[in-house]
């Protein structure tokens, strides 16, 4: 090596490799490993922002609905979002059933949005499907809007007595979360 050193500046010595493939193999391998390693380390750095275990653990809510009279509704919370539970009157059920489904922006019948035999219990998220405000109509004396259901004050979306979008900018009906009646009066949401 000494002779090479005297003859050629070291900076250029590597331009005349004896076996170029082996060097490439090792360098590429090392760089590829570094890349894979960086990618694997990025996963926890990204995943730490997903809901943590304590948040996920609170993803079911049990509700006692026995105190809600026909025509009344309550606001509860489900995954830190407002949840509307409404006991529909026979008149409200009839109004909802009278609407031709084909006229709706998001066609669904009331029966599809409630449980069998429990058609009077309308359980929806209280989150307007437009941009996430809480619609009015669940509280005592609040504006129920032109269709008697819910009315979003932010941008004027109006929902009917089945929580379906009828006018305004919202694209779809108020979401119905997964839920089941674990007794006649207790609902478990989530």
């Amino acid at each position: 090596m000494a002779t090479l050193d005297e003859a050629v500046p070291p900076g250029e010595a590597h331009d005349a490799p004896a076996d170029p493939r082996r060097r490439d193999y090792l360098s590429i391998g090392a760089v590829a490993f570094a890349g894979v390693g960086a990618g694997v380390v990025a996963l926890p750095l990204i995943n730490q922002m997903s809901p943590s275990a304590d948040v996920l653990a609170q993803s079911t809510t049990e509700l006692d609905v026995s105190a809600i009279q026909p025509g009344q509704s309550i606001k509860s919370t489900f995954r830190k979002q407002p949840l509307f539970v409404r006991n529909l009157t026979p008149k409200e059920i009839a109004e909802a059933d009278a609407v031709p489904v084909s006229d709706l922006r998001d066609p669904e019948t009331l029966a599809q949005r409630t449980k069998e035999g429990k058609a009077n219990w309308l359980i929806t998220l209280g989150v307007c499907t437009h941009l996430g405000c809480v619609p009015l109509g669940a509280g005592e004396g609040e504006n129920k809007g032109p269709f008697g259901g819910y009315f979003c004050p932010c941008h004027g979306s109006a929902y009917d007595t089945a929580g379906r979008i009828r006018s305004g900018p919202a694209p779809s009906n108020l979401a119905v979360p997964d839920y089941e009646f674990i007794s006649d009066t207790v609902v478990r949401v989530g």
Binding site: L4, A13, R22, R23, L26, S27, G29, G37
Partner: peptide, 22 residues
């Protein structure tokens, strides 16, 4: 295990790159 393999690769790459230079 991953890092040990990386070290061998990095050392091999270093040896190869430096082989023309004392």
């Amino acid at each position: 295990i991953f890092l040990v393999i990386f070290c061998f690769l990095a050392y091999g790459a270093k040896k190869q790159i430096w082989r023309g230079v004392k």
